[in-house]
Nucleic acid binder design. Structure first.
Lengths: 208, 208
DNA sequence: GTAGCCAACGGCACCCGGTGCCGTTACCGT
DNA sequence: ACGGTAACGGCACCGGGTGCCGTTGGCTAC
């Protein structure tokens, strides 16, 4: 759930005073994902990851606040992109259309990245510790959506409707991801599109 | 989010062979909530709780799988009740009406319990560690709702619509709780009712 | 009353994630 | 060569969580 290429270092890292970094956030993330895929998340210790990356355990925690965080690449960046994209949506565009477009973009990846993005999402959606941790990320994501909806509706972001929009969109996206994991041949963008379009008439379809 | 009075012991505890229990799940929960309210969740260690309850730390973990779990009383029981109530809903009753009724019942408490239920929910919704942990509970709750919706709609529980219903209902309930915490004078049942009714026309209200 | 069954208790040692502290290392500009 | 600077990484420590195992104490049977 983070798009495109991101910075390859914990800090800008130009000609800068001080000792240079030994590795990068994204490289560390890669090593971690590899180990998780092989041994499983719980069975992989932070020491394992650090050793595999050739750094000290203490240093690992300078790149990631927690073992959980290694799974989510640069999520903050993704959130900023999402926020920016929503901010520049045409004012006349229907709310749900703008959201759908933004969410699809948020989940668009280079084909080369897809396989390990799948691994990543499988971890997030299946490993209890990560399911739990991810709630914090989801909350931040929902907030971005809720704030956008709130602006459009002229209500505070913590009002009923904006919050419901946030929950619904997240639910749609999560459902799409579940299906994507269950059917490896399916197209994520299509699944997301379908799920988000279903929101429009969801309760109409249910009312029967 | 668990209703009425529940068993006061970890196991049935009639005339039973073996050493009798020294305390009970619910009493332990009480002591824990008291400490959390005073010192805060993070600042309270399991040793603190165990000491306050006059038991050993090891024993605490025989009553609760984790420190987090002490906050959620007997949630499984609540889930069973919710499931049972939904199962006995009149087949002719509209889906959303049945859900609203069940959710209101699920969140109905003895007035005497309300104050510490408020404390409990404040912890769950505000303490990051509990926000995260609660995702697992929420998922189980959503599943109950999704399964009910699935039965009604004649679809599998992991299909799009049932999942969306689950997410939306949970979102409505969480939003109601947020408002309840923000406005201590408000009536939780009314807030829940309002939020769940809003689901019906939610996207209609948004489409403008 | 005494023997023995049985489950709860709780100490102990251990693992692992996470943090504060601090000395070390390595690149930089002067 | 030197001093500034920032990443590194060891160390000690904390707290949650677990496996193991001996202890406790109420119960039933004899």
């Amino acid at each position: 759930m983070a798009e495109g290429l991101v910075d390859d270092a914990p800090l800008p890292h130009g000609p800068r005073p001080g000792r240079p970094t030994v590795t990068s956030r994204s490289e560390l993330e890669q090593r971690a994902l590899e180990l998780f895929a092989v041994r499983g998340f719980e069975a992989t210790t932070v020491d394992d990851i650090a050793a595999a990356a050739g750094i000290g355990r203490r240093t690992f925690f300078r790149y990631f606040a927690s073992k959980n965080d290694a799974v989510w690449g640069d999520f903050e960046q993704g959130l900023s992109d999402l926020r920016a994209r929503l901010a520049t949506a045409a004012p006349g565009q229907p709310l749900l259309d703008a959201l759908r477009e933004a969410v699809l973009a948020f989940n668009r990846f280079d084909p080369a990245e897809v396989p390990w993005h799948r691994d990543r999402m499988a971890l997030i959606l299946r490993v209890p510790a990560l399911q739990a941790h991810s709630a914090l990320r989801y909350a931040a994501w929902r907030d971005v959506v809720a704030e956008f909806a709130a602006r459009r509706l002229g209500e505070p972001a913590d009002a009923l409707l904006p919050q419901l929009v946030g929950h619904s969109c997240l639910g749609a996206a999560m459902t799409a991801y579940e299906q994507w994991l269950a059917h490896p041949d399916a197209d994520l963008q299509q699944l997301l599109d379908r799920a988000l379009r279903a929101l429009d008439g969801s309760w109409a379809g249910v009312r029967g």
